[in-house]
Design a protein around this nucleic acid. Structure first.
Lengths: 324, 324
DNA sequence: TACTGATGTGTAAACGATTTCAGATATTAT
DNA sequence: ATAATATCTGAAATCGTTTACACATCAGTA
């Protein structure tokens, strides 16, 4: 069942049927004839043929480090809702934080497979920037700032500066920090820098050894909390780059019989329902994840529309609030 | 840059270039000439043209109720890893438990957009079965049993039977149950039935009012726990259909000053790192989610391979273990 | 009347691959 | 020597659309 058959059955030309679907010039008379035949046959134009001809796939490629994560899951849901609203579909790739895979999918997608790409990358190497530069489709980066590219991210620095100040204001003075690798500019570098600055600005001279680096899992939080506590006895507060890490840390503290928050206050970022129950005393930063996903798609749609015209990049920094 | 140009540059025919990529007969001599030109130009065959010609999209459609969920996230990750191994890509759709959307995507995908579909449905209406019947591509259902279709699911009945027995064996006798809607056969009906049977089989006469129905969120678990506790005073154990619900329930219990597990023992299903920290005493059932996703893809690949031949459906029931 | 411009129509050429077919050549078996 | 097979080749048809183009028709206008 193809456009040819439909044309024949309705007594018109292929072009007319095509115009019927793409609202080109067509008389009321023929429109009705075609409508009837289409209804009877349940005919739908072949997406692949359309794609081949028009070069539009109506698909957006989304690249994420993992999907079994509260924050990423919520971003993806935000992305998906707006993607579908606009009649697009989503091609999803998971990189497991493997930069090689990131690059692989980035080029695979841009090989004319999708109309645009959304990248939830974590680490940007020189190679990434080289590939991004030569990308044939518009791209939006979520969660990281990358000058010269469309991106939407949260204000990690001020969020963690405020968070640290809040903890200090509560009378805690010996703070430990569990972060993630500094190559991750947003979650690794910015947050830790803010922590350091806040501690320094308030005259709480900083030790260098109150800092350890974890990965994005509960079990890593557990391990690194042990490591940190063994290096630094008598901390009275622990700030973690994410709630997931904080959850692991608290698990360790509890096992050691250390009372949270009386002896050690714990803070993080994420504000998930799960973490709220796991650590009722948790001080956490709320980011509007769904929203950032939605905004990313809007940005991409804009770039897609402007296409031919000179596309100028746009950065979008989102706010936060602290939940006690 | 198309196959024609490459053929010209290497001094061969289009057919030869096509054969080069699809390992058909080709002399070593020409193979080398083509290889060189391909390398120089960085040419890659157009996926859309291939698709149009071969009718193979190399894409799998995956339909899920939501993605910001620990269990679903893990299943999706399992699916994705095997999908990519086999050179396929994943088209993801989220239905928000809306059956209308499920049907919509199901037909959209089967409209020749994908080579196969994986469905993580929850509720199957008559309409679903009608559409499934007429689907033009193979489908695998994950998490639910549906006779006559390829499906991979866990043994919900025995898991919850054993779980309930275990709780009873620990000397608890006044059990409450927080489930989900019974239209969800696996999570709603099977689990509750097993709970009832276990209670009945051991002579712990069952009240009908020790049962409430929640949705799949922490906050719903909280609300329904309140509702249940108000109906049934002096319960000494609470079994929840999922750990997410259990987490919400425990939040309520703690706020009421009820000690877990001393006064009320709580059990669920999921075994996530988060829940483990939130409720250290939680008794939970472990399902191998990643594995079920992987198996689903293998099943689909098999169906894809057999295609022409008569495709006979296959059911796969996976085991579990209980974590204390 | 003749000239606009808007509206409507069909023919045929793309889009970029795969694959059938008919035939050529080289290799082996009889 | 002949036949049978295996390996290789390019021409041309095909997949199912969109769209440039040329041409009609018809109302309104100068």
């Amino acid at each position: 069942m193809n456009i040819e058959k439909i044309a024949e059955m309705s007594g018109v030309s292929r072009a007319a049927v095509s115009r019927y679907f793409n609202n080109g010039y067509i008389s009321e008379e023929k429109r009705e004839a075609i409508r009837k035949v289409v209804e009877e046959t349940g005919y739908r134009p072949s997406v692949q043929a359309q794609t081949l001809r028009t070069k539009k796939t109506k698909m957006i490629g989304v690249i994420v480090p993992k999907v079994a994560s509260a924050s990423i899951g919520r971003i993806v849901e935000g992305i998906l809702s707006v993607i579908n609203e606009n009649g697009y579909q989503m091609l999803l790739a998971v990189t497991q934080n493997n930069p090689k895979k990131e690059l692989e999918y980035l080029s695979a997608f841009s090989e004319k497979q999708v109309d645009g790409v959304i990248l939830l990358g974590t680490v940007f190497l020189a190679e990434h920037k080289r590939i991004l530069k030569n990308l044939s489709v518009p791209v939006v980066i979520v969660g990281q700032q990358l000058t010269g590219y469309n991106c939407v991210f949260h204000d990690d620095y001020h969020a963690f500066y405020d968070l640290t100040r809040l903890v200090l204001d509560k009378g805690r003075s010996r703070l430990g920090y569990i972060g993630v690798m500094q190559q991750d500019i947003a979650v690794g570098e910015e947050r830790y820098k803010a922590f350091q600055d806040a501690v320094h600005d308030t005259g709480h001279g900083g030790l260098a050894e109150n800092y350890v680096v974890a990965s994005f899992t509960v079990s890593s939080g557990y391990e690194k909390a042990r490591e940190l506590l063994e290096k630094c006895k008598n901390l009275d507060a622990l700030i973690c780059a994410t709630d997931t890490i904080a959850t692991g840390a608290v698990q360790y503290l509890r096992e050691q019989g250390i009372h949270v928050p009386e002896e050690i206050l714990v803070a993080g970022q994420g504000d998930s329902a799960m973490a709220r129950v796991a650590i009722p005393s948790l001080i956490t930063i709320h980011y509007s994840y769904e929203n950032s996903g939605e905004l990313a798609v809007h940005m991409l749609m804009e770039a897609l529309a402007e296409r031919e015209a000179k596309t100028t990049s746009k950065e979008m920094k989102l706010g936060y609030y602290i939940v006690e």
